[in-house]
Amino acid sequence: MSAEIKVLSTSTRANVEALKHHMKKLGFKYFEEKDGWVTFGTHIMMNGEGVAPYDYISISVRFMDIDVDLLGFDLINKLPEAEQAILDFYEAEEITE
């Protein structure tokens, strides 16, 4: 049984780097890329299953899908700018669905 490792393309990596830069300006740190999702959070915490992001935004790098969990009001106010950065990422990736 072989384990399949999915690697992001060079162009997608460049687009993710641009997104990471923009999200950093908004106060989010890059957390991880896993199973086709890129996650940004303000910090990490321990949960019952290990380490997880806190106040996070996860986006799919294959489909137009966003998962957001924000408790900080100052972060909620940044959502429109974060949303625009994510939409710019999807446009660069030519993802429309």
Results as ranks from 00 to 15, higher is better:
residue 75 L to M: 12
residue 51 V to Q: 07
residue 91 E to L: 03
residue 8 L to Y: 02
residue 5 I to D: 08
residue 55 D to W: 02
residue 7 V to R: 12
residue 21 H to D: 13
residue 36 G to C: 09
residue 36 G to R: 11
residue 78 K to C: 03
residue 83 E to V: 02
residue 73 F to P: 00
residue 93 E to D: 00
residue 1 M to Q: 05
residue 64 M to S: 09
residue 32 E to Q: 11
residue 84 Q to Y: 05
residue 26 L to A: 03
residue 24 K to E: 15
residue 57 I to N: 05
residue 74 D to F: 05
residue 54 Y to H: 10
residue 64 M to E: 14
residue 51 V to C: 00
residue 1 M to K: 07
residue 93 E to C: 05
residue 32 E to S: 13
residue 55 D to L: 01
residue 60 S to V: 09
residue 51 V to W: 01
residue 9 S to Y: 01
residue 64 M to T: 05
residue 48 G to C: 03
residue 52 A to K: 07
residue 3 A to V: 08
residue 53 P to F: 03
residue 8 L to P: 02
residue 56 Y to Q: 02
residue 41 G to L: 10
residue 89 F to T: 03
residue 43 H to E: 15
residue 51 V to L: 09
residue 29 K to D: 13
residue 21 H to N: 12
residue 44 I to W: 03
residue 8 L to G: 00
residue 7 V to T: 11
residue 30 Y to G: 10
residue 56 Y to M: 04
residue 74 D to R: 14
residue 97 E to T: 12
residue 31 F to D: 08
residue 54 Y to R: 04
residue 34 K to C: 04
residue 77 N to R: 15
residue 61 V to M: 02
residue 72 G to E: 12
residue 13 R to P: 00
residue 41 G to W: 07
residue 4 E to Y: 05
residue 69 D to L: 03
residue 86 I to Y: 08
residue 29 K to P: 00
residue 72 G to C: 01
residue 73 F to R: 09
residue 3 A to H: 06
residue 17 E to R: 12
residue 83 E to G: 02
residue 78 K to W: 04
residue 93 E to G: 00
residue 55 D to Y: 01
residue 92 A to V: 01
residue 7 V to E: 14
residue 11 S to L: 08
residue 52 A to D: 05
residue 46 M to Y: 08
residue 55 D to C: 02
residue 34 K to G: 00
residue 12 T to I: 15
residue 92 A to S: 13
residue 25 K to M: 10
residue 15 N to A: 15
residue 33 E to V: 15
residue 36 G to M: 09
residue 45 M to C: 01
residue 88 D to S: 09
residue 48 G to I: 03
residue 20 K to V: 07
residue 91 E to V: 01
residue 74 D to C: 02
residue 77 N to F: 07
residue 37 W to D: 03
residue 68 V to A: 07
residue 62 R to Y: 08
residue 32 E to Y: 04
residue 95 I to Q: 04
residue 75 L to C: 01
residue 69 D to I: 01
residue 36 G to S: 10
residue 5 I to H: 08
residue 12 T to V: 15
residue 36 G to V: 10
residue 17 E to T: 09
residue 97 E to H: 04
residue 94 E to A: 07
residue 91 E to C: 01
residue 26 L to H: 03
residue 85 A to S: 14
residue 28 F to L: 11
residue 4 E to I: 14
residue 72 G to L: 14
residue 65 D to W: 00
residue 10 T to R: 14
residue 27 G to I: 07
residue 56 Y to I: 01
residue 76 I to Y: 07
residue 36 G to H: 10
residue 14 A to I: 08
residue 53 P to Q: 03
residue 18 A to N: 09
residue 81 E to Y: 08
residue 43 H to K: 14
residue 19 L to K: 11
residue 51 V to I: 15
residue 15 N to K: 13
residue 64 M to A: 13
residue 75 L to Q: 06
residue 90 Y to K: 07
residue 78 K to F: 04
residue 72 G to T: 04
residue 95 I to L: 15
residue 6 K to D: 11
residue 31 F to C: 02
residue 84 Q to A: 13
residue 31 F to A: 01
residue 37 W to F: 15
residue 27 G to S: 04
residue 40 F to E: 07
residue 58 S to N: 06
